[in-house]
Amino acid sequence: MSSFATSRDGTRIAYDIEGSGPPVILVAGAMQFRGFDPTTVAMAGLLAARGFSVLNYDRRGRGESMEAPSFTLADTIDDLRALSAVAGGPVALYGNSSGGAIALAAAAAGLDVSALVLWEVPLREELGNDGADFLDGLRARIASGDADGTIAYFMKDMPPQWLEGARNGPGWPVMTSMGPSLEADSESLAWTQSAPRAELWASIEAPTLALVGEQTLPIMPPAAESIAANVPHARKETLPAANHSWDPEVMAARIAEFLARLP
């Protein structure tokens, strides 16, 4: 049975906790939540078995956290503050894809973070304006009420077979229901272009591991290199993985190894 934390604006955020030990919060990327993401659920259990208290939650606008008045990056960071209070800080954050940009933003905003593990954060060019333009376009589609068009727009720069597979799969209605929540994903990525990254991330003291798969999209290795170059205590590593996905056992083992070596 889910537990609930109450965010600053009163939104109820559903979560599970497994295991005991140093706390880790799993920050989902686009269109992920516990009931729609068995890979992360499996990884949470494996990581908990390695001696960590693992909090896996449904981001606002998704799963059991569906009802919320707004879906901004600031709202999402407030949710993490509420969950951190439950877990007991400082907390390690595992950020998956755009969830990694949210994790960076939370750490830069002063969340008490012990470590960051970031999987394939899809950063665009530093100081570019394409992220802000994309965010404007996404907000316009959300405001129009075009649920299908919102998801299609969000996925327009991904491999076309991903969108085709999603449209033709049984999960499409679930994906279209969480379109408004994608605002925070897009806003977090636009934020990474809003100033020089060394300036944006200068206050992040947490040890940081930026991970990419051996087979991945061209955008991902330079993005991880940018994190390693601009977050003060960060490094890049490669995992045996492909197509922006990963094996739960491999990921749990690498997160556990990284966190176990922290002071």
Rank of each mutant, 00 (worst) to 15 (best):
V41H: 06
A44R: 12
A28G: 15
L46A: 10
V86R: 15
L83Y: 09
S97F: 08
A44Y: 01
T76R: 15
G21C: 10
T11P: 04
P69N: 00
S65E: 01
L111H: 13
V91L: 05
S70F: 06
A28N: 15
P90Y: 03
L93T: 05
G35F: 01
D78Q: 06
I13K: 04
A28F: 14
S98W: 11
G35C: 02
F36Q: 14
L55I: 15
S65A: 05
T72Q: 00
G110I: 15
I102C: 03
R50I: 10
S65V: 04
R62L: 10
I25F: 02
V27I: 15
L111N: 10
A28L: 03
I13A: 02
P90E: 06
M31P: 00
Y57T: 01
A85E: 15
E64I: 01
L104H: 10
R81G: 12
V86S: 08
V24T: 07
A108M: 13
E64L: 13
L83M: 06
L55Y: 09
R59S: 15
G61Y: 03
P38T: 08
D75Y: 02
G95I: 05
G99D: 00
E18V: 08
A109M: 10
G21H: 06
G100R: 04
G95V: 02
D79M: 09
